[in-house]
Design a protein around this nucleic acid. Structure first.
Length: 560
DNA sequence: GCCGTTTTCGGCCCGACTGTTTTCAGTCG
């Protein structure tokens, strides 16, 4: 995805939020949001083409975007930023707190941040206020607490985009990211970048426009806080110690402790500069050399969590984790027939360009009323897909649907409709707060539907925004294994759902998985790499992942 | 602010849930 698109879309999205907070017309807010979404998902770089070509962008938004491309902001955005404190914007991050309440809290009570809201509630300053009863206040207090707990961590999509931007901005012989980002954790606290470069790279780094504050500036390490609030550490390392430095700074700390203990037992010393026997260098230039010298298999970064990988690697029993290139297709994607922004034809063309053997289109079904889906529309799409199939002899197009799992576990359509789809993904989209036992029954009922092949984004969490639902996952996974229902690893980075610990648990029960992008735009197709990271963290092999399987095996699995 | 086999103004994805209210506002997907 072009960086200019992302940044321009983020500015427009921010403007939409601020516009709503200042009481702006709701339809205009929606226009801005819609345009922001379309720009972010537009395959062409808007700094190189006319932004008016993006659907939902008219003259007024185009002017704003052109000004943004010129100078990194636009006048109306500057105005509103000056009028609304940053903390008031963060108020709307509190679940169930929207723009109307946020602006009231600010204007009438001077509450200008989630923390201030927490204090006001605790002090009883909002008791008896019209529209804010005791339950609402209790909910808001809980929401504030959740928000504070999630801290400054960001999801991997945000961190990866920033890391790639930083790496592209530096002049270096060699540059890479390490740390929890390289281990593909779903949330990232700060970003570690390693470089082989002259010391002048530090000055170049500090002068970048994304740097808001320099925290520490030295020859070997520079730390900055970026404009997005994320800390980035840049370390310059000697070329000869590259592997040792990557190994050391990738972590995890626990993994490194285990590795270093092994080195000590052999009378050696492992540091960020290399593996040494006294003064003699045993290995330092590559990570592979270091692991080999220690008599163990190379451990892929996502598996470096001291979760048994050291022992397995010493015995040569480390499984070969699934790789991005093992995926033969994507089984959960959307088009503009529901809430995607790209047409069926464009999505399929983009999927073909990625070299897939098969590709499923799974737009929403009628129970999600806002999507205005009907059976007629679905059948019409099936015909279009069948016609399109003729143009793609090497890629099998699968007609699927993303069903909605109702509170009782039922889905949108009866059996005679479901059986005609190639792929039925079923997901929870509402009633997130059901009690644990009811939620468990809900998932089990969905698994027991013979036509449901995949449970989509099972926990429904959104990182930093919505907590996972509560269910007895052991019971759900047992049902999934028994009924041959795959659990999805939804690769959309703010979902990252299932998370790795639950994937491990599910695998233990014998569950299979589908690593899907849940794409709503062409650039989202590439998000599968994040799902592969989750799968690697959970030690999944190709045998565990149904969309690495050849078409015939996949279809046999999905068929009731 | 965008858009048009509704064509330059008047619509704009619709419905449900929650907590508040006594008929509704705000939020969410």
């Amino acid at each position: 995805m072009a960086r200019a698109n992302e940044q321009a879309a983020a500015a427009l999205q921010e403007y939409a939020e601020l516009f709503a907070l200042t009481g702006g017309d709701a339809f205009r807010v929606r226009s801005y949001q819609k345009a922001a979404k379309a720009i972010a998902g537009h395959p062409e770089d808007i700094s190189a083409t006319d932004v008016r070509a993006v659907p939902g962008v008219g003259e007024a938004i185009a002017k704003k975007m052109e000004e943004f491309l010129q100078r990194g902001s636009f006048r109306q955005l500057d105005d509103l930023r000056g009028r609304v404190p940053e903390g008031v914007r963060r108020l709307t991050r509190v679940p169930s707190l929207g723009p109307k309440t946020a602006i009231t809290l600010f204007e009438e009570f001077g509450i200008d941040s989630p923390a201030a809201l927490g204090e006001a509630i605790a002090a009883g300053r909002l008791d008896g206020v019209k529209g804010l009863g005791p339950k609402t206040l209790a909910n808001l207090a809980k929401g504030v607490e959740q928000l504070e707990q999630s801290g400054r961590r960001v999801h991997i999509g945000v961190a990866m985009a920033l890391a790639e931007q930083v790496m592209a901005s530096l002049t270096a012989e060699r540059v890479a990211y390490a740390g929890s980002l390289r281990r593909m954790k779903d949330t990232i606290g700060d970003i570690d970048i390693l470089a082989v470069a002259p010391v002048s790279v530090m000055e170049e780094f500090r002068a970048q426009p994304y740097v808001a504050e320099v925290i520490a500036a030295g020859d070997k390490k520079t730390s900055v806080r970026t404009t997005s609030g994320i800390q980035v550490d840049l370390r310059v390392v000697p070329a000869g110690s590259w592997g040792a430095a990557m190994q050391y700074f990738t972590g995890s700390k626990e993994h490194n402790v285990a590795i270093r203990e092994m080195a000590v037992k052999k009378g050696w010393k492992l540091s960020e500069y290399g593996l040494f026997e006294g003064e003699r260098v045993i290995a330092a230039e590559s990570e592979e050399d270091i692991y080999a010298a220690l008599g163990m298999q190379f451990v892929p970064p996502p598996m470096r969590e001291d979760g048994g990988e050291v022992r397995a690697a010493l015995r040569g029993e480390l499984p070969e984790p699934v790789r991005l290139e093992d995926l033969l297709g994507d089984l959960h994607t959307h088009t503009d027939l529901t809430d995607g922004i790209a047409s069926l034809e464009d999505m399929v063309a983009a999927a073909h360009a990625r070299g897939y053997s098969y590709y499923a289109v799974t737009d929403h079904a009628p129970d999600l009323a806002m999507q205005r889906m009907t059976l007629d529309k679905a059948l019409e799409q099936r015909e279009r897909l069948a016609k399109l199939q003729r143009s793609y002899p090497g890629m099998r197009l699968l007609h699927g649907t993303e069903l909605n799992i109702a509170p009782d576990g039922s889905v949108d359509w009866p059996a005679d409709v479901l059986r005609e789809f190639d792929v039925c993904v079923a997901s929870v989209h509402s009633h997130f707060g059901m009690p644990r036992d009811e939620m468990t029954r809900r998932f089990i009922a969905a698994c027991e539907n013979p036509y449901v092949g995949i449970i989509g984004h099972p926990t429904t969490r959104k990182i930093g925004k919505r907590e996972p639902v509560d269910a007895d996952w052991d019971a759900v996974f047992r049902a999934a294994a028994r009924t041959g229902t795959a659990m999805e690893i939804d690769s959309y980075p703010d979902r990252s759902d299932l998370p790795a610990d639950l994937v491990r648990l599910a695998r233990h029960h014998g569950v299979k998985f589908s690593i899907d992008s849940d794409s709503h735009a062409i650039p989202h197709l590439a998000h599968q790499r994040f799902g592969v990271g989750i799968a690697q963290r959970a030690w999944l092999t190709t045998d565990d992942v149904i969309n690495t399987w050849p078409l015939e095996r996949l279809l046999a699995f999905l068929r009731p």
